[in-house]
């Protein structure tokens, strides 16, 4: 068990160190995240100059929602599993298949390293932002909500991981452009349907009712609703149930597609 963990911890370290190899690239990436956050922050700040409340969201709750999207994105969406599509399309997957490691666990630890480095820098950025802008934030004090929020973040990371893998696995049958076209479409759809631009319950009720059943709602929108205390009691259990369902369902589908894909895999380019 210790050996098993040591092996994968090395991968975690590799992922962390990789961040500091391409320092300028990473700094630019963090700058981009900060710019996106500031863009959304100033956009919504401007909107609230002319509105007291939008669909039940006061200014402080909405600005908290926007700032917390950056934290959730750093945790849930920081991922190196995009690499899977490239590995399959270029035939590099063969290298991993020959090694005494589980490919998906390798990817989980790569992801963890990426999440850790992004979160580490985000903390400094947020402190800077809070000191400079002094936004009116909603602070959750209930321990139940805070613990639930953390649990939901972990589950959201797994749902995103499996869904991302699922999209990447299409490279087995469709390796064009190293799987990027599917990723491009996926990222645009997820960005909107996860509630990263606006809270999903602002959308018309029928659309929102439909989105409740999609896994993307659980990446960001529902964990944030829990932090903001907009879901309680039975609602928490309902969200937890859906998140566990999506984690297990996607895991099964990914495993099934992976086995199917391996049968079609031709190691093109090797």
């Amino acid at each position: 068990m210790v050996n098993w963990l040591a092996k994968y911890l090395t991968i975690f370290k590799m992922s962390w160190q990789n961040t500091f190899v391409y320092r300028l690239g990473f700094l630019a990436w963090r700058l981009r995240s900060l710019i996106l956050l500031l863009s959304l922050y100033f956009f919504w700040l401007a909107v609230y100059q002319f509105n007291v409340s939008i669909s039940g969201y006061s200014q402080s709750v909405m600005l908290t929602y926007i700032i917390f999207t950056s934290i959730i994105k750093a945790v849930v969406f920081s991922s190196r599993s995009n690499q899977v599509a490239v590995d399959i399309a270029t035939g590099d997957l063969s290298n991993y298949l020959l090694k005494p490691v589980k490919y998906f666990i390798w990817m989980v630890f790569l992801d963890l390293g990426d999440k850790a480095s992004n979160l580490f820098f985000l903390i400094f950025e947020l402190i800077l932002l809070l000191v400079l802008l002094k936004p009116p934030l909603f602070i959750q004090t209930s321990l139940i909500y805070l613990i639930s929020f953390l649990v939901f973040l972990v589950l959201a990371s797994f749902i995103y991981f499996y869904l991302n893998l699922l999209i990447s696995l299409t490279s087995f049958w469709y390796p064009e452009h190293n799987g990027w076209p599917a990723k491009f479409l996926f990222s645009i759809l997820v960005d909107f349907f996860c509630g990263g631009i606006l809270p999903l319950d602002i959308l018309p009720q029928p659309v929102f009712s439909l989105l409740k059943f999609l896994p993307s709602s659980y990446f960001l929108f529902y964990p944030l609703q829990v932090y903001l205390g907009r879901i309680s009691g039975l609602g928490l259990i309902y969200v937890l149930g859906f998140m566990v369902f999506w984690t297990l369902a996607l895991r099964s589908v990914v495993n099934f597609i992976w086995l199917k894909g391996l049968k079609s895999y031709q190691a093109v380019g090797r």
Partner: peptide, 21 residues
């Protein structure tokens, strides 16, 4: 990244800048 920084920044000018501080 520099290209994307430009494109990310341009998110703010999809609406009139008059609404901002």
């Amino acid at each position: 990244h520099s290209m994307w920084i430009y494109r990310d920044l341009s998110f703010m000018v999809r609406v009139p800048v008059d609404i901002y501080q």
